[in-house]
Every structure is written in C-alpha cells, then in structure tokens.
C-alpha cells in the first residue's frame, strides 16, 4: 500500500508540473498554446515519440537502455517503403519492417547477454550500423509513400478531430501500463530492474526477459518509423533519427530512473506530454530550429538532474544496483 501511495504522489507531482508548464506556455504564447488545433498538433507530433517512450520505458524499468531506437525505426520504415514501391501490400511491408525491428533488437540483446556488452555501447554501435543501412537501403534519396491505407492511418482523424496515430499511441500506453502493472510479466520486469541477482534466484530468467524487451523496443521503434513515414508521405534516411533520444527523455521526465526497478508507463505518458508541450512551445515561441536541438539536450539533462535529486541514490554504474537498493532498504 505504501509503495502505491508513493507512486500516486509521484504521478501527482508530474501532473502538477505538467499543468504548471501548460499554464506558463499558455501565458507566454498568448494562449495560442492551448487552442484545440495546437493541442491536436502536440498529440500528433508526439505520437512517434510516444511509441519510442513505451519501448524505452519498459527497458529502463528493467535496468537497460536502447540508444538504437532512432536508427532501427528509420531503417525499418525505409524497408517498408521500398517494399511498397515494389508493389508489396501494406500489411506485408509493415510486418516485414516490424520483423526487421525485432531482429535488430534481438541482436542488441544477444551482444548484451552473450558477449557481455554494456547495453549503451552495444546499442550505440547498432545505432551507427542501422543508420548506415538506412542510407544504403534508399541510396540517400527519399522514397515517396503512396499507399492509401498507411496514408489513412498516418493522416486521418476520427470525427475529423482525433488522429488515428494518437489513438494508436494511447492504446499502446494502455496495453503496456496493464502489462507492466497487472501481469506476472510486468512484475518480473520490475524485479529484474530492482535486483537482477535476486530475480534469478527467485527463478526468473533475466536473459530471456532481456531478449523480449529489446525485441519489443525494436518492434515499437519500427512502428514509430512507419507512423512518421505514413504521416509525412515520404521515407528518408533521416527518419526518426532526430528523435533518437526523445523516448528516453520522455521516460526519464516521467519518473523512470536509470537504476531500473521503478517508475511506470503512466508516468512515461505524462513525461511524453511534458516533452511534447515543451517542443511545441519552443516552436510557437519562434526558437531557432537549431537551438531546438540544444533545448532537447538541455531537457534531457534537466530530466536527469531531477531524477538524480529525487532518487538520491548511487547511479554511477560502477556500483551494483543491488547495493544501492540494499543501502536504501537499510536506511529505512
């Protein structure tokens, strides 16, 4: 019960922060920020990041990280676009792309599980490889996407108002929130993140779970890439690479800390809204496009600082997580 109340209060803090942010941006933009059209814009542009945030969030709860989501998603979307341009139906193209995303995720997990790579460096190398492959797939030229179904999913709206892409993301968040909070699978993810050694002793298989979570991250990245491609009508080698770390930023902003074992998917959703509002307000306020790169980095660091100050435990990576946990428990 205690833990639940704590989570409630964390969620409450995040919501309060989001409300303050909306108020501040509303005032700064002369209330253009809270117009319905703009809110729809925010939701639609964050839908891509939303899928990345779900994948990154689940991984980070287990104590892992995937820096290759941007590259993987871009590569997969291009594969889909090339297949479509050769006359393959949309569902087959999408399935192939998702399969490629899963393969990429499994390969990262293989490097981590079998060859003892640190997750960040394994996925950083994979980011480089997949970005290079993306260029090779399309020969550095954009591929137009004309498939009516994908264009419909990317651009159409329910009741001319709620974009389908937003609906997809909300469904994804709901499914993953239930999966993480209410199922045995979700509990084992938390346990592995909190204490890998104990989870192994309790009969869980951390390596199997690592494969599943990285495959999941690759699949979601792939769908995110396809979503962006469907919305913009072209696939190119930049794709979602500029959102490479946005999913992680959203997850950290939403209270999922780097040590693993805490935070939740609901928090990540609020983190996503904070990130989306921030990005949108920067555009509305006329911030230079290049400075938005700087702002994105600053926001990631701000999230990390907040995480560090609130978690108040050693995250320096060299000390085992279990020790930090043990210290914390001893203090209680």
């Amino acid at each position: 019960m205690n833990g639940k109340r704590f989570l409630m209060s964390k969620t409450f803090t995040l919501l309060a922060f989001l409300a303050l942010l909306i108020l501040a941006f509303g005032i700064a933009t002369g209330w253009r920020f809270v117009e319905l059209v703009n809110i729809r814009n925010i939701l639609q542009t964050t839908s891509v990041i939303g899928l990345l945030a779900v994948g990154a969030g689940a991984l980070m709860i287990a104590g892992y990280i995937d820096l290759s989501a941007g590259g993987v998603g871009t590569m997969c979307a291009l594969l889909c676009a090339v297949m479509l341009s050769r006359g393959v139906p949309w569902y087959a193209g999408t399935l192939a792309a998702v399969a490629l995303g899963i393969i990429a995720g499994l390969f990262s997990a293989f490097l981590i599980n079998k060859l003892n790579f640190q997750p960040f460096i394994a996925t950083l190398a994979m980011a480089q490889v997949t970005e290079g492959l993306a260029y090779l797939i399309c020969n550095a030229t954009p591929i137009p996407v004309k498939d009516p179904v994908l264009k419909f999913i990317g651009g159409a709206r329910i009741f001319t108002y709620i974009p389908y892409s937003v609906l997809i993301v909300i469904i994804a968040f709901v499914i993953y929130a239930i999966l993480m909070n209410k199922t045995k699978f979700g509990r084992s993810v938390y346990l592995i993140g909190a204490n890998p050694e104990a989870s192994r002793l309790a009969g869980l298989n951390p390596k199997r779970l690592t494969y599943i979570l990285f495959a999941n991250s690759g699949a979601l990245a792939s769908i995110a890439g396809i979503l962006l491609m469907s919305r913009s009508g072209t696939a190119n080698a930049t794709g979602i690479t500029k959102n490479q770390f946005s999913g992680i930023t959203a997850a950290v902003l939403g209270g999922i800390s780097f040590g693993g074992g805490n935070g939740g998917i609901a928090g990540a959703f609020i983190g996503l809204l904070i990130l989306g509002s921030f990005n949108n307000a920067m555009t509305l306020l006329g911030l230079d496009a290049y400075l938005q790169t700087t702002a994105a980095g600053a926001l990631l660091i701000a999230a990390l600082i907040i995480d560090s100050l609130t978690a108040r435990r050693t995250l320096s990576g060299k000390k085992p997580r279990s020790k930090a946990k043990a210290d914390k428990e001893a203090a209680q």
Partner: peptide, 20 residues
C-alpha cells in the same frame, strides 16, 4: 556531484553543443 551516468549526460551535452 549529481551521480549521473557519464554516457547519458554526455549524450545530452553533445546535442547542446551541436545545436549551439
């Protein structure tokens, strides 16, 4: 001081310098 893992904070710094 803040005990943040160096790989992730330097990714953030990299974006800051590049954008600037």
């Amino acid at each position: 001081v803040l005990n943040i893992m160096s790989f992730i904070v330097t990714i953030g710094m990299s974006s800051i310098y590049t954008g600037l």
